[in-house]
């Protein structure tokens, strides 16, 4: 059974093919904002997954557009340069017929001379109802959420969180793993864990999903995660998660390997001797991948440095689902915008 849902508060869409096939049995979404995945319980993550299924169905249509957010203003406020994520959100919002305002605030609030709180108030006064935000400072969306009357969707904050990425990663893994579940599967995240919001959000969602999660990288880019890893088995319902610099041990029998981008500025702080040395010791190559399961799923959140953290032939290997991640990213973001739009007033 499917339920036809238009923009909340307005009559259901008169266009039958514009319906979004969402199960009527779905539990209610109770979050006004999505700042990280840590606040989602497993049934809510499942709701995001099934809603994403519905959005995938929409995307497969000749005209991939539904009126669910017609008349809604989605403002995309990015304080950091980004093409992939920003465009993904924009496409997602437009597919839902939202009015999209794009603000590229390429500088921090300090250098710009206007505080983040002032910007949030201004954007709201200009009609923003949903705010997609990216910021270089960890925690910035929490400040925005405290001052914004609508919903805030975190598009990445500092080293802290990137919830839509973690959810699209989970969706992509389930899509490609036999049996459609990551429970008990060995998932390896490889690279610059220390500075990665992708890794941090994935820790919450993948341990909640019961994955056997391994974080791997040079010790300079792993420090501080030991205690978190030690705590992880004690979280009820969460799987294990461990930290290692032993790439061989990490890759042995892996079901999923996700490489993370290595940034050049890591050399300046003495975190790495050189990109050459990183590629030689930690680069994801065909030879190393042979230690994983033959049907291993290869992922990367992008943008890639081919030849550094991932060899070009691995990136384009048939086992690579990197472009699927991009497509699924649009569907997951549609799902989240849709779910958040249905919530008014109370919620967290």
């Amino acid at each position: 059974m499917t339920l036809e849902i238009g923009a909340s508060g307005s009559p259901a869409s008169p266009v039958p093919e514009a319906a979004i096939p969402v199960s009527a049995q779905a539990p209610a979404w109770r979050h006004r904002h999505l700042l990280d995945v840590d606040v989602l319980d497993w049934s809510e993550i499942e709701l995001v997954m099934t809603t994403t299924d519905a959005m995938r169905e929409v995307l497969a249509r000749p005209i991939a557009k539904v009126p669910a957010l017609r008349g809604r203003n989605v403002t995309i406020l990015f304080y950091e340069a980004s093409t992939r994520t920003r465009v993904s959100f924009e496409v997602a919002a437009k597919n839902l017929s939202a009015d999209v305002v794009n603000i590229a605030a390429a500088t921090s609030s300090v250098t710009k001379g206007e505080s983040l709180v002032d910007t949030i108030r201004t954007v709201e006064a200009l009609g923003a109802q949903m705010l997609v935000m990216r910021h270089a400072v960890s925690g910035a969306p929490y400040l925005a959420a405290a001052h914004f009357g609508g919903s805030v969707l975190n598009g990445g904050d500092g080293w802290h969180a990137h919830p839509t990425q973690a959810l699209l990663d989970l969706y992509t893994m389930r899509e490609h793993l036999p049996g459609g579940s990551v429970a008990g599967r060995k998932v390896v995240i490889l690279g610059d864990i220390l500075h990665s919001r992708v890794a941090r959000s994935n820790i919450w969602s993948l341990t909640a999903a019961g994955a056997d999660l391994w974080l791997c990288g040079p010790s300079t880019l792993l420090r501080g995660f030991d205690r978190w890893a030690a705590a992880s088995p004690r979280i009820p319902g969460h799987g294990r998660f461990q930290v290692t610099s032993d790439l061989g041990a990490a890759l042995a029998g892996a079901d999923v390997v996700m490489a993370l981008r290595i940034q050049r500025e890591r050399m300046a702080g003495g975190l790495l001797p050189s990109l050459r040395e990183y590629a030689a010791r930690f680069g994801l190559t065909r030879e190393r991948l042979a230690a994983a399961r033959p049907d291993v799923v290869v992922m990367h959140p992008g943008p890639m440095n081919e030849g550094v953290e991932i060899a070009p032939d691995v990136a384009t290997d048939p086992r690579s689902v990197i472009t699927n991640q991009v497509t699924n990213g649009v569907a997951v973001r549609m799902a989240l915008l849709y779910l958040l739009a249905g919530v008014h007033g109370e919620g967290r």
């Binding site: 925690g139 802290h160 205690r227």
Partner: peptide, 16 residues
């Protein structure tokens, strides 16, 4: 640096 280096800073993504 933003927060005491350790578990909390690691989880919150704050520089130790």
């Amino acid at each position: 640096s933003e927060a005491n280096e350790g578990y909390i800073a690691s989880v919150l993504g704050l520089k130790g």
